[in-house]
Structures are given as structure tokens and as C-alpha cells.
Simulated scan of single mutants.
Amino acid sequence: MGAPAPATGPPGTTATAPAAAPVLAEASLTTGGVARRLGVSPTTVRSWERRYGIGPARREEGHHRRWTPQDIAVLEAMCRLTARGVPPGEAARLALGAAAPVPSGAGAAPGDGAHEGPAEGSPDRIDTANAPAAGPVSPECRGLTRAAVRLDTAEVARLLRQVVDDMGAVAAWTEVMMPALRAAGRRWAGEGERYVEVEHLLSWHVSTALRRVADRPVPPRPGPPALLAGMPAELHTLPLEAVAAGLAERGLPYRMFGAAVPAEALLEAVRRTGPAAVMIWSQAKHTADRVLARRAAETAWGGRGSRARPVVLIAGPGWAGHQPGAGILRPRDLPGALDRIEQLLT
């Protein structure tokens, strides 16, 4: 939301400042607007206001309640604290500040707003059900998706650092990052690109968290590397970055070439690096190229009597229905792919 435009008048007249009430209206939001901005339901916002006094500090008779930036900052703190598991009553006291009294009777109670289901149509209903088959959505995934919907970059970054440090990159990708990204993608598709900014923000922070692991200054084991590349028309790289992070955690050498690697450049990279394994990623069927996969598997290096070829791993949903040929494997999941690459490299 941009800053209010300066008041102007006809030539030769002096512009006058707008009245106080319009300024307040332009610089503030309604309860519904605040709920949409933070990714919680209006019902939850009203419940927090009723139970804990987290509401607009300034009200005007005959007008909708308006939330100023200072009011919204308190509500953002409440969202962060409850997402981290702090009981709502304590979260309210921390958000309001030790000097600010919480209304009498405020405290955790059955039907507390922090635990109410979000209203239908609220951004808080971003679907996190498509998690790996191992079980229900984890609290970390739920917290991450909610922070992303709020566009709370500090909380998204903190949560990603925490899950990577606590779980390792592979488990963090499988149990938290990937389900959250799928949820954002489904929400975007279902809302006509309304939540594309959520997916972009989350993707950038996931990439940052994975690269923090992949770029650790730990000397890898000696030996031929694994080569990671996207197909020539493939722009998605996050799954490859998860593979790179997993290889780095195991101390295995790799070369990451990223998205949209031209066919001849990929084959030249194979000849120059002499990899034991080549993983090529395809997110959609139109980017999967069986001919290029076969050419990569047939690319040899080394002198006479010591010629070698890589094993190619085709990965990603774009390869669905493709039958691997000679020298080509199709791993089922990230841990399986890492195990197979480690076998090939060692």
C-alpha cells in the first residue's frame, strides 16, 4: 500500500492538509483487511481482541474499527508467538508489553481464538494436507505456511533455519519444505494466481536455507562428483538444491549447474567433469527429453583402455511414464536418490 498522495489544488491556490480522520483512514486497515494481510481469519482477530485486548488503540464513533501500523505490529507479534506454541494468554501479554494490562478474565480457555479453525475462504486455510504419506502435517510445516501467507519474512527465515538445524536438510525438505511449497502452489492454482507472491517468497527462502547447507566449507570426499542439472527447458531447481544439500551433508562431491542447461552444454559438462552420476530434473512432461538422457548416459571420457560413462538418474514428475534405458535409473524419493548416488560415487 503506497503512501497517501499529497494534497493539491487548482493553479494559484494553496493546497490544504486533509483532515485528521481521512489521514487515519488511509493509514489504517479494517479488521477484514488485517486478517487478509496476516493470513488469519477475522473470527480469530476478533476473538483475540475480545479475550486479550489485542485491538485497535483508537476508535471512532460511527465508524468501523481501524487498525494502525502500531496495532498491526502487536497483532503480528501475537501471530508469531502463537505459531511457536506460546499459550495465547502469555502470547498476548508478551505482544502487548509487560506494562500493558490484559483484560480481566483473559486467559487460555476452551474455544480460544488461537485454536479456532480459520474461516472458509481465509488465507489461513492454505491447504497443507498433501504431505508425504508418512503421517499428518507437522507443526513446523503448518507454522511455515502460515508465516508465508502473512509474508512474514523474518519468521519464515527463522523457521527454516530451525528445521534445517534440528532435522537436517533432507528431513526438512521432505517433511516441512516440500509440503509447504505444494500447499502454496495449490492455493495459487485454486485462487487464480492470488497467492503467487506467497509461493515466490517461500521458494526464495527455501532456496536460501538449502544453499546454506550446500555451501558449507567442508572438504568433500575425493573422487568423481555427481552432476546436477535441469533439463534445457526446465526452470525449477529447488528439488536439485535439496539434493545438493543432502550430498553436502554426506560429504559427497557434486557440481550444480542449475536450471535450463542447454543440451550440448550438459554433455560438455559431463565430458569435462567425468561424473560417476548425473541427475537431470524435469518438473513437467514437456521438459523431459529421453533422447538427451540417453545421450548423457552414452557420453564417455578418459583415454583408451580407461573409458568411463556416468549413470544417469532421471528425477522429477516430468519423467512419469518413461521407462529408464540402459545406464539410466529413476529414483523414487530423495533419500533413495542420495543412497544411490553415494553408492555410485564411493
Rank of each mutant, 00 (worst) to 15 (best):
G2D: 15
P4H: 04
T8I: 09
T13I: 08
A19R: 15
A19S: 13
A20S: 12
P22R: 06
V23C: 09
G33Q: 15
V34D: 05
V34E: 04
V40K: 05
V45P: 01
R46K: 15
W48A: 03
E49C: 07
E49G: 15
G53C: 08
G55M: 09
A57N: 07
R58T: 14
R58I: 13
R59E: 13
E60F: 13
G62D: 09
H63D: 14
R65W: 08
T68P: 04
Q70V: 12
D71V: 06
I72N: 00
M78R: 03
R80F: 07
T82N: 07
V86D: 02
A91W: 01
R93I: 05
R93F: 04
L94M: 09
A99P: 00
A100H: 11
A106F: 08
A109P: 07
A109F: 14
A109E: 15
P110E: 07
G111Q: 06
G113S: 09
H115V: 13
P118T: 03
A119Y: 03
A131V: 15
A133D: 14
G135P: 03
S138K: 11
P139A: 03
P139H: 02
E140R: 06
R142N: 13
R142K: 14
G143R: 00
D152W: 02
A154Q: 13
V156H: 03
A157C: 12
L159R: 09
L159A: 07
D165I: 01
M167R: 00
A169W: 00
V170F: 01
E175W: 00
M177I: 12
M177L: 11
M178T: 11
M178W: 10
P179C: 10
A180R: 02
L181Y: 03
R182V: 04
R182H: 10
A183S: 14
R187Q: 14
W188H: 10
W188Q: 09
A189Q: 13
A189N: 11
G190D: 14
G190Y: 05
G192M: 10
E193M: 11
R194N: 11
V196Q: 09
L201E: 11
L201H: 09
L202K: 06
T208N: 13
R212L: 01
R212D: 07
V213Q: 00
D215H: 02
L228V: 12
M231W: 05
P232Q: 07
E234M: 11
E234Y: 08
T237C: 09
L238K: 01
L238W: 00
P239S: 08
L240I: 04
L240G: 00
P253Y: 04
P253Q: 06
A260G: 02
A260D: 10
V261Y: 01
L266T: 02
L267W: 10
E268L: 14
A269R: 10
A269S: 12
R271N: 05
R272E: 15
R272G: 08
A276E: 05
A277T: 04
V278T: 04
V278R: 02
V278C: 09
M279A: 15
T287G: 03
A288Y: 04
A297W: 06
E298C: 06
T299H: 03
W301G: 06
R304K: 10
R304H: 08
S306C: 06
V311Q: 03
V311A: 01
V312P: 01
V312E: 05
A320H: 12
P324V: 07
I328V: 15
I328G: 01
R330A: 15
L338E: 02
R340E: 14
Q343C: 10
Q343M: 14
